[in-house]
Design a protein around this nucleic acid. Structure first.
Length: 543
RNA sequence: GCGCUUGUAGCUCAGUGGAUAGAGCAUCUGGUUGCGGUCCAGAGGGUCGCAGGUUCGAUUCCUGCCAAGCGCACCA
């Protein structure tokens, strides 16, 4: 619809230039957008404002010329889909769609059902979406939860428009932090991590339940503890509490065992990207815009995290990944440059996109609560979900763009759960389900509704929202603005409640209108449910 | 010091090179014998951090400054 209008405007402008009515100049991308107010129609264009100068005309005059051009288009769809076009100050061209076009939207939803809004812009593109990837040294905190929900929904949106997406959790089960974990569970003189879970693991060692003894070295103990934490804490949290499903759990240690790390280092060497200094192997990252060069192999022979990531990226190349998505905590933002340099050096040519999720600041009684993973006093995502429920936690995080430094008021957490708009949206869905149940009980059939009867402003308002859903999905797939989804859900629920207050659906006195409205609310229910579904939130039939 | 991110209503946050800058919560007023009152309608509340610049037009783009968060390892 949007594209039809854009094309028509372009056609008109080209014709005007050809006829000499407008001076020749290169036409920019013609944009038709959704106006902010309902009164300005379904679609609106500001081309006249943009081109006024080049056209040497004032915007209003130009807009009127374009308007009449569209009205006179031989091939135009004006009678079919456009009810009227209006020019508004300072130079907008507003399009009002016909009743027929709006009815067609409802029909389309009813036919496509949960496939409504699906597309193919991502067809044939393989996306690797790596997220959370917290070290297996303790429970997931709120920042992990935030990034996890964000990236999970991003995957769902991308899949809806055809991308082939792999959700990956990269497990850092090699390296220094595993040794630290080992010391911690052994409770020797080098304890780093603390908390109930560390105590529990320690207890199992003391009870000889693990094959690890007090005399085991920290590497062995760390590997065991990491495995336990991954399987019994992290996977449980992610799959059962957060409702996220990962396609692959990549083990850093396995990258080493499979020789990918060494292979990647060799590739970097032969590409002339490395040099040796003071016994260490360095990567020339500063030549590519990084602050300084980075170490790949330390003087003691151990490989750094960057080296294993090179192996990791090499595995993407081998599995023919087209696009790499990385969701990092904002505290790792300094790492993105290195990551990209290594990827390019290894020959990756596709798109790499980083999302930096700001950590969640926890506030209580107006004061910030300082948290430390080491001291074990972090608020975990498990605790939050236990307290407010999965849907609320998910919706709450999804509502805000990941780069905002959001405050999470702990004191209001439970109160917030009642105020959370997720209930408002779910209630709208339950309300629709209820009406449809009642319609069935009372013997209303919803076949053959005449959609031309849906002329009430509240009805048009609802249909408008339905019409924008596919564009919304596409926009999110393009710019990763996942937070638009809950906002849309709220707006749609809002319009539904407002419609409900003004328009009675089930009316024995006016069956044709009842049938038409049943069609409409069935369509609204489908789109509302699909919006919630894409967000990973339940759409209840009853509450 | 350098770098990244952020600064919009009392609070949490959307949004935009152009039409009156929006939502939720909070506050206040009104409505609702009805298909589910977990609802609806409305009001008040803003120097879009500050100062310059580009532009017919800037809250949006550019520069500088101020403030907040984070980062600047042969840790990950």
């Amino acid at each position: 619809m949007k594209m039809i209008l854009e094309r028509e405007i372009r056609t008109v402008l080209e014709a005007l230039q050809k006829a000499g009515a407008l001076p020749p100049f290169p036409l920019p991308e013609i944009l038709v957008e959704r106006p902010k107010e309902d009164q300005f129609g379904e679609y609106s264009s500001n081309v006249a404002l943009m081109l006024a100068k080049q056209a040497k005309k004032n915007p209003m005059e130009l807009a009127q010329i374009i308007e009449s051009g569209i009205l006179n288009l031989e091939s135009g769809n004006k009678n079919e889909i456009i009810e009227k076009i209006e020019v508004a100050s300072p130079g907008y061209i507003n399009f009002y769609l016909s009743q027929k076009a709006l009815g067609a939207v409802v029909e389309e939803v009813l036919v496509k059902k949960d496939r409504y809004g699906a597309g193919e812009i991502g067809k044939g593109v393989k996306v690797n979406n790596e997220f959370i990837s917290a070290n297996p040294t303790g429970p997931l905190h709120l920042g992990n939860g935030r990034g996890g929900f964000y990236a999970d929904v991003l995957s769902r949106v991308l899949r809806k428009v055809g991308y082939d997406v792999v959700n990956e959790y990269y497990v850092n089960d090699a390296g220094e932090q595993i040794l630290k974990l080992g010391h911690s569970v052994l409770k020797d003189s080098e304890v780093v991590y603390e908390g109930n879970y560390v105590d529990a693991l320690h207890q199992r060692i003391m009870n000889h339940e693990s094959g690890i003894t007090e005399e085991s070295d920290s590497k062995e103990a760390g590997a065991w503890a990491a495995q336990e934490i991954l399987e019994n804490m992290i996977k449980k949290t992610v799959e059962q509490a957060m409702h996220i499903s990962f396609d692959v759990w990549t083990s850093e240690r396995k990258l080493f065992e499979d020789g990918l790390v060494d292979e990647a280092i060799e590739k970097l060497k032969s590409a002339g990207m490395t040099f040796e200094n003071e016994g260490a192997l360095w990567l020339k990252t500063s030549e590519q815009g990084d602050d300084k060069d980075r170490v790949l192999i330390k003087a003691d022979g151990k490989k750094t995290y960057l080296a294993s990531d090179a192996g990791h990226i090499l595995s993407y190349l081998k599995s023919k990944v087209d696009t790499i998505l990385e969701t990092f905590g904002a505290d790792h933002h300094g790492y993105t440059k290195r990551f990209e340099i290594v990827a390019r050096a290894l020959g990756f040519t596709g798109e790499i996109h980083f999302t930096l999720v700001q950590l969640v600041k926890v506030v209580k009684d107006g004061e910030e609560v300082r948290m430390s993973k080491r001291a074990g006093n972090v608020i975990t995502i498990d605790e939050l979900i236990e307290k407010v429920g999965h849907d609320v936690a998910r919706f709450f995080f999804l509502l805000y763009a990941p780069e905002t430094q959001m405050n999470f008021d702990l004191g209001l957490a439970e109160e917030h759960s009642e105020k959370n708009p997720v209930f408002y949206v779910q209630y709208a869905h339950a309300r629709l389900a209820s009406i449809l149940r009642k319609a069935e009980e009372e013997g209303f059939t919803k076949n053959g509704g005449d959609l031309n009867l849906l002329v009430h402003p509240k009805e048009r308002g609802l249909i408008r929202e339905l019409m924008f859903f596919p564009e919304l999905i596409e926009t999110i797939a393009r710019d990763f603005s996942v937070h638009r989804l809950p906002q849309y859900a709220i707006r749609l629920a809002d319009k539904l409640h407002s419609f409900y207050a003004d328009c009675r659906v089930l009316d024995e006195e006016d069956k044709p209108l009842t049938y038409a409205r049943l069609e409409l609310i069935s369509a609204v229910k489908i789109v509302l449910a699909e919006t919630l579904h894409v967000m990973g939130i339940t759409a209840p039939e009853k509450m």
